[in-house]
Design a protein around this nucleic acid. Sequence first.
RNA 1: GCGGCCGUGGCGAAAAGGCAUACGCACGGGCUUUAGGUGCCCGCGGGAGUGAUCCCAUGUGGGUUCGAAUCCCACCGGCCGCACCA
Length: 964
Amino acid sequence: MSETNPAAAAPQAEAAPHRYTAAMAADIEARWQDFWAAEGTYEAPNPKGDLAGAPALAARPKKFIMDMFPYPSGAGLHVGHPLGYIATDVYARFQRMTGHNVLHTLGFDAFGLPAEQYAVQTGTHPRVSTEANIENMTSQLRRLGLGHDKRRSFATIDPDYYKWTQWIFLQIFNSWYDEEANKARPISELVAQFESGERPVPGTTRAWSALGETERADVLGRYRLAYASDAPVNWCPGLGTVLANEEVTAEGRSERGNFPVFKSKLRQWNMRITAYADRLLDDLDELDWPEAIKLQQRNWIGRSEGARVDFPIDGERITVFTTRPDTLFGATYMVLAPEHPLVEKFTPAAWPEGTHEVWTGGHATPAEAVAAYRAQAASKSDVERQAEAKDKTGVFIGAYATNPVNGERVPVFIADYVLMGYGTGAIMAVPAHDTRDFAFARAFELPIRCVVEPTDGRGTDTTEWKDAFASYDARIVNSANDSVTLDGLGVVEAKARITEYLRGEGLGEGTVNFRLRDWLFSRQRYWGEPFPIVYDEDGIAHPLPESMLPLELPEVEDYSPRTFDPDDADTRPETPLSRNEDWVNVTLDLGDGRGPRKFRRETNTMPNWAGSCWYELRYLDPHNSERPVDPEIEQYWMGPREGMPHGGVDLYVGGAEHAVLHLLYARFWSKVLYDLGYVSSAEPFHKLFNQGMIQAYVYRDSRGIAVPAAEVEERDGAYYHQGEKVSRLLGKMGKSLKNAVTPDEICAEYGADTLRLYEMAMGPLDVSRPWDTRAVVGQFRLLQRLWRNVVDEATGEVTVVDVPEADVDVDTLRALHKAIDGVRQDLEGLRFNTAIAKVTELNNHLTKTGGPLPRPVAEALVLMTAPLAPHIAEELWRRLGHTDSVVHRDFPVADPAYVVDETVTCVVQIKGKVKARIEVSPEISDEELEKVALADEKVVAALGGAGIRKVIVRAPKLVNIVPA
RNA sequence: GCGGCCGUGGCGAAAAGGCAUACGCACGGGCUUUAGGUGCCCGCGGGAGUGAUCCCAUGUGGGUUCGAAUCCCACCGGCCGCACCA
């Protein structure tokens, strides 16, 4: 090994031939990595099946520790990528040393846009480039010494894996949500209810048996948890695909590529995640997740309690959703979303007599005004729409509805500040108590009626109001009719009373509305899981039978997506799979007793999120060919237990950017599989931890162009590149900013153990911080000193002395056991930075003490280091004479007798300022300590004869004296 | 605009409401080496003093407390999320 490394081959200075150098680290690390691979050190036994075994390990309590798996990008890794992987590895190693059977592995999320775009750029087939990237990344990661169970690794593009992704899709397709049971059930049970008449068939008076096949398919499509529908979707011509709401930014652009996104009506697959809105919200309470992420999910789900209220119009009714039914008496007009389907129906031929001029938009007829406004609204991108958010636009449709509680005629408008996608797409406008309605009412000179008494002294006459009064903490006024009055009630009571009244009158009901929309699940891409769906000649979708899975991606000549002018909203997507007619048109026997028939295949593919929706389950039982995961194995690793009522992975570490995408989708799939009885865990990830980002300085020249960070020099607090002054800013690390540092170069310069220590020592795991290559050497020095404390640099001999722990001097034992105690707590709490500080402190203490280390101290030190720097720990452990690996050794346990000092320093304060320190016994009583403190000469001097008003004693650490 | 998080040495950062600045980097001094990088030792928040010592410092201003980096209020600055959600 050393022959291939010139640095290692060069005769090192005679002074220290056995010094811990980069060359030695490289040698040690390679040897132990080979050893671990050969021994299967990190293999975690299952309770049964092909991965069963190692009974001693299998009998231990389990820990399932997981990273968010990576996209195998073509760019390779920089030092920011492995931060989380190192953290979980340290934690997993610590858990192995504290009596757990630890499952820790890593796979690859290899379908999807990034992998595909790289393939398109390089002109290679996605499978070829993706597999090469996986191989490259695997070898980069191997160099870090991560303790993964390799047998459990897979990529989402493996047909053996996506067979089950497709299978789960079919389970979802073949399920419906039973609102009464509050869970998903097989669609066959719904059909049985229709057949028996137990449940009436919606939308028809006819019996189930009287319906044709297409009609039945349509009915079931309204229940299935995976369904195709024609709805306005996010169409991104620049990417050539439709996108989920979660993938579109607030500016109305694609998260990836930043192209414009348009609303376009297209037939697409959806997942009925909205059926789970309540459970996705409620179950958050039981999860050990960062509050910020929980909050983001809560906001995304967006539960609002309110009421539906019907406004009669022309013998029909328009239903609105409101969270403020208490202000119903103040509703002076209505607004529908421009695309609301009822608009045409109520738009009359001519403007009613005396229609206000500003309401018509200057158009001759209502139909003209509506058409013009709709065209204008549709052409506006979301960006423009938002930029103009303050200026309210809209147009009167020429019709009046009736306010159901006071019988007043209220004009009906369309305006783009009302969104079709939220609530019922229609609102009652209460301008006095809603900021948006207020702005609209002022613009269109609509009446503003105060029904909530302002508490800020402005009075109930709204003519001079500058803005709406939207407070909840106030009393209702001007709100009574012959049968109900809200006057004098608080907002909460008023809501309850009016809702009750509306229900009684058949005018509305209390309801809960969600912001969450169904999940758009199809993409016009090649590089994704094909849908296991075929269409018969009537266009009815049929699931493929399980025996036809996996439905593999066909080889096609042209796998690139058909993209368009990013700004051309009138384009239509084209699926790459549709280019292969031989694959699309098939004759199949679906096993439904109807023999071979002609079908067309679904040519959309699944989104890149599909593969990551259930991968935690496959790690458990990766080779199972009968089912996604064996229930007994799933129960062992992920089943509910004390403190985790929904079960799940014990620790899941990844970036916060997946707060509402992957993490929401995976929870949804989990719940469907749970409802259908395939798994015992209703949540995939019990504890979630978001690691921070490793940032890097970006240096730009006077033109604003990034210059290579490695070539920048610092002089007197300024930065120079080739003599030119450059500016410095903190940013992301990456190739484009010319500031990427790779793990490979740090490993070459110092070794993997140093890199691991540095990344963990930089600061708390959840905080973002800048990378500083110069500072890495500090952790290298720690390892050198550790090495020197055990091995003689000149001779290579181990220098420890064999003495029993009882003979070790007490100061050293105190330092040791305090460190053990602290490091244990820090590792358990993922505070790796302070754990390393404590190891460093102990090591420095031992260095200063001088002389050979007593064996019990050296061994404990090595074991404590093992989770953080596993290679050097293995090497020293072996040199200390052991033949086994440190990996499954017990982590040292602190002896409480040595964790407390014999004497402690007690601080004596006067009015909170430290005036004296005295050495006292840790067992000293409050009374005794007070006496000693008051007798101290410095204290006496500081008091200067002043009397004492009060003495606070916190034995044995502190006395605080308050003079009179 | 709404919501959340965060402000401590030159830098990354430590501190169950109880000795602020642990640990590391950088910097300064010394030692070792023919020499150098990634070796070793010492010093290192600011100010005063020859000195044991004293005073002042946790974004700013108030408050609670015997005692506040930590809790509360307001402001300033930064980061993140949502954004016409009825």
